[in-house]
Structures are given as C-alpha cells and as structure tokens.
C-alpha cells in the first residue's frame, strides 16, 4: 500500500530541531518506509540527518510518501505532526 499526503509546514521555525526529532521518532514506530519530498529533493523520513538537510521552512509544501502495511496510519499521524494543530506561534499542540 502506498499513501501520499501533501502538507504545508506551519511551524514557525520550519521542520527543524524538536519537530524534526519528534517526526523521526514517530516515523520509526512504523514498519512502512517513509519518504519526504520537497521540490526535487527526496529524503528518508526516518533519518534526522536527511530531514535537517531538507531545511523545510515555514510555508513550504512537502509530500509524505508512506509505503507498507501501516502506511495509512503512518501518513495520517506524521502529517498531523507537521500540519496538525499548530497555531501561529509555532506551538505544536494536540498532536504532540
């Protein structure tokens, strides 16, 4: 099963630091492979180094591609971390 989901980064400081670490920790709970695509860059969603290299800033559009048995759940949960309930302060709320 392959699930694709497009998300806009709403966190003020982009996908760095804490959000990135949370994302990687969450991604590693799933057996599915996770890819993150931004423009023409593509990185492994289970790699903190990869995600940091993306330097995805606030407002950038990224696509999460999950492939595997738990792809659906993975795509849901991971996109929620990025786009879920994050208010204008860059405050990650409910989802984390």
């Amino acid at each position: 099963m392959v699930i694709k989901k497009e998300v806009t980064i709403k966190n003020k400081s982009g996908l760095h630091a804490r959000p990135a670490a949370l994302f990687v920790q969450a991604a590693n709970k799933f057996t599915s492979g996770i890819l993150i695509i931004k423009d023409d860059q593509q990185v492994n969603g289970k790699s903190i180094m990869g995600i940091l290299m993306l330097a995805a800033e606030k407002g950038s559009k990224i696509t999460i591609v999950a492939e595997g048995d738990d792809a659906l759940r993975a795509a849901e949960e991971l996109s929620a971390i990025l786009a879920g309930d994050i208010d204008t302060l860059g405050m990650t709320a409910k989802t984390v």
């Binding site: 400081s13 982009g14 760095h16 630091a17 804490r18 990135a20 180094m49 940091l52 290299m53 330097a55």
Partner: peptide, 21 residues
C-alpha cells in the same frame, strides 16, 4: 559534509543540532 551544509543555515535551532551532531 553534513556539518558544512548545516553550518550554512542561519537558523539558531539548526545550529544547536550541529553541536549535537
């Protein structure tokens, strides 16, 4: 290689990550 690329970022959180790395 990673440190060099990340060092170019202006973001302070990213710099914190560099010291971790």
């Amino acid at each position: 290689k990673y440190i060099d690329v990340l060092s170019e970022a202006k973001d302070e959180y990213l710099r914190d990550r560099i010291s971790d790395i």
